[in-house]
Write a protein that binds this DNA or RNA. Sequence first.
DNA 1: CTGTATCCTTGCTGATACTG
DNA 2: CAGTATCAGCAAGGATACAG
Lengths: 118, 118
Amino acid sequence: MARTSFQGEIPKEQIEVCPVTGTQNVIAGKWKIIILWHLKETKRFGELQRLVPGISKGILTSQLRELENDQMIRRKVYQEVPPKVEYSLTDAGKSFIPILESMGEWGKKYAISKKDVR
Amino acid sequence: MARTSFQGEIPKEQIEVCPVTGTQNVIAGKWKIIILWHLKETKRFGELQRLVPGISKGILTSQLRELENDQMIRRKVYQEVPPKVEYSLTDAGKSFIPILESMGEWGKKYAISKKDVR
DNA sequence: CTGTATCCTTGCTGATACTG
DNA sequence: CAGTATCAGCAAGGATACAG
């Protein structure tokens, strides 16, 4: 299968040169973009897991935690039994949605049917 | 150091749900965004290596090849001695620049000074 | 239901040496 | 100058079992 991943963090000097790097550091993570996409509407943990097929609870948790640390999403816990947790976008997260939309539009035009060529 | 990487490719089904995924598959790669950024102007291999501190020839080559396969950049070889190779953006690549600019703007506002918190 | 803890696997990154 | 080939290391992703 084609490789599209990356590992490690980009040095800070690069952020000066190319501010996009800072953004990249936030959205890097295999599922973060998809998660943000779905969180345009507030969703519960279980919903997210269902919406993102193939993701395990552990990974979903870690991605959510990182997004939370980056202040992209908010985590609201309802003290009930059974537990209920809702995730929603922060202002920063919301402000990123237009970029996701742009990326989606671009992807429809250019990124489809290019895979499996290598 | 904080982790921001990811590994593996996102399943195709997800592309239907979230077209951004296709875009993500193209720009994922530790240095691809920086490379595209610099390629707003045509550059030679050596220039790129100098502009992106810390990247090795091997990695730079592989990232360039993947971008080429994804038809984001064009590779022009001058049959000379010593060899000369120029890289430039394709139309698809150029059309992605505005998104990079948006990401840069967003990054300046939201992505700075959030690191090293985890 | 929503996690946490642990271990394992994958494969990208990066370095080095070599080539046209 | 612009690569290619090879190898090693390690971080991220993933699975499973357990917990509040």
